[in-house]
Amino acid sequence: MKRVSYAEFGGPDVLRLVDAEEPHAGPGRIRIAVRAAGVNPVDWRLREGQRLGAHPVELPAGVGQDAAGVVDEVGAGVEGVAVGDPVFGEGAATYAEFAVLTAWARMPEGLSFEEAAGYPSVVETALRVLGQVGVRPGQTLLVSGAAGGVGSAVLQIARERGIAVIGTAGPANQDYLRGLGARATTYGEGWVERVRWWGPVDGALDLAGAGVIRELVELTGDPHRVVSIADLGAPELGVRFSGVAGSVPDALTEAADLIARGRLHIPVERSYALTEAAAAHRDSRAGHTRGRRVIVV
């Protein structure tokens, strides 16, 4: 089969489309014929050699953890899913023709494989950081970097829970944030004052790593009310860095329910072929995403 791999750490150019042995579903796992794979910042962070404790890398390594596709092998002990079922979930080396998933859920009706591949990690992350930041219904959450995949999920889940959201993003994404129910403002000079104009902030999420941790602490008044998924230096300022996944199966179940009820939709901004993985990583690293980027197999 074909898969995207890298034999050394470095920039996007270390990615290669190679021939590889097909993986197989061990106990408690399923294998899918991949139709699409989600592109996440963790993918290029690992490729660059950033040391993320929850994701040890042994070279040569495959790329990707999110995927949607059709079940074609079911491991021992797995129930509730059969060969031929369309599913989405998390696994390893998902930029490939076949991949083994460790967590999955049936795809909601009407969802395309491209769309489904964009949900697993971002919804798990959104649910996790919303729990960690501790903002309750009726309170206000500030989200820095609100237009990307995680931000899109956070805004919609927060709205479903009765939490008011202020989102920051680039000028081109202001209407997009408003469409998801957020009060929107741009980055740049004066953004702190623009946020203050709306009143007190009860918690804040840093989703973009834009160097705004000090300002988020200032706006909330307490570093323990700020959570980052993007700034590895956040703990130096007393802010929690959230990098370890919670219950992925539970997150997928909740995602499927929200999608089926029309309460969650994350658009696909751009799709790439397996041969374009390097371009997908360059674009992901550059940021300014509206929704998700996916690899189509």
Rank of each mutant, 00 (worst) to 15 (best):
L130D: 09
L130N: 11
L130H: 07
L130K: 08
Q132G: 07
V133W: 09
G134N: 06
G134C: 03
G134A: 10
V135A: 14
P137L: 13
P137H: 14
P137S: 15
G138I: 01
G138D: 02
G138N: 01
Q139A: 12
T140N: 04
L142E: 08
S144V: 01
S144W: 02
G145Q: 13
A146K: 00
A147C: 09
G148L: 06
G148I: 04
G148M: 09
G149R: 08
G149Q: 09
G149D: 05
L155H: 10
L155F: 11
Q156E: 14
Q156N: 14
R161F: 02
I163N: 07
A164R: 15
V165M: 03
V165D: 00
I166N: 04
G167Y: 14
A169I: 06
A169Q: 04
A172E: 12
N173H: 09
N173T: 03
Y176W: 06
R178L: 13
L180V: 05
L180Y: 08
A182M: 05
R183T: 14
R183C: 03
R183P: 01
A184N: 14
A184P: 13
A184R: 13
T185K: 03
T185M: 09
T186V: 11
T186Q: 11
T186P: 03
G190W: 12
W191Q: 05
W191T: 08
E193H: 00
E193I: 03
E193W: 01
E193G: 06
E193Y: 01
R194W: 01
V195M: 07
V195S: 06
R196T: 03
R196A: 14
R196G: 00
W197A: 14
W198K: 02
G199F: 11
P200L: 04
P200F: 09
D202G: 03
D202I: 03
L205T: 07
D206V: 12
L207S: 00
L207V: 00
G209T: 05
G211D: 12
G211Q: 13
G211R: 15
G211C: 15
I213G: 10
I213A: 08
I213P: 07
E215K: 07
E215W: 06
L219K: 01
L219A: 10
